[in-house]
Amino acid sequence: MNWLIAILQTTLFVALAPLLAGWLKRCKCYLQNRKAPSVLQPYRDLLKLTNKQPVVSEQASWLFIKAPYIIFSATILAASVVPLIAVDLPTSASADVIVMVGFFAFARFFLALAGLDVGTAFGGMGSSREMTISSLAEPAMLMAVFTITMTASTTNLSWAISHVLEQGLVLRPSFVFALFALILVAVAETGRIPVDNPTTHLELTMIHEAMILEYSGRHLALIEWASQLKLMLYGVLIANIFLPWGIAQSFTPQALGYGLLAIIGKLAVLAIILAIAETLVAKMRLFRVQEYLGFAYLLGLLGMLSHIILEASR
């Protein structure tokens, strides 16, 4: 039964990710006075891509063809670790938050290799930039995560969320910092403005898009889907760790349905905030990103210091 719910939750994750992307696009269009496509448009795009014949460069090796599958399944694995509608599922015990970061690294490793595989300058450029940004983002992310895990004294996400739920509403300065740090890192890691522009058409400013320039057909669909999944994953992480209320603690249909509604509501609000931020902020130069991520790291560090100084001093 538990395993069934775990599989159901992961499937929900995968199924809902394009919806979030569609909703985000809709909010952005609305804010920018453009006519918005349907919320279901990402699904149609994915379907269209899977029905097309993929074209692969003659320079590409087997790694280029297999990489999308590896990236997609690594991202699904990361998704299975994060509690979406219910806590205390068996999959979340199989790996903790550090392993989740590891899965992201796994997917990124292959994405960067695929970018280098064809031997064009753009692919190499994208890989180089992506690896740089991610290696700066990782310490900031772990700093924020450490703050949470030290408060809950566990690295298991499910237990951490239960811990926050048990305590009720406690104003924790450290959580405020960790929240902001995690948001900044999430923006950088999912390639949103101001770090990267997912809708850019100029190759020189691309990061994520430059790596997947050579992909087409079902391979492109998988990679797009994986990046939508990653966006949703970060959203759920932020929503469920800092505002876990509503998540199901028992496996009754009622609680699960309530949990689903709660997370959809939370994600919708988060997407609106992200859309507003993306509309207001301009993309920054590549070498400003280090300052941005340095600030994220600083916030994480302050969060941890305030946990040690303000909350748990002896």
Binding site: V176, L302, S306, E311, A312, R314
Partner: peptide
């Protein structure tokens, strides 16, 4: 000392302290 055992006033004051600290950092950078 654990933050859970404090009353709401203390929690608010501590959060404010943290935010004031944050603004100082923001000014610095």
């Amino acid at each position: 000392m654990n933050i859970e055992s404090q009353d709401l006033y203390t929690q608010i004051i501590l959060s404010m302290a943290a935010l004031v600290g944050l603004t100082s950092f923001l000014m610095l950078g």
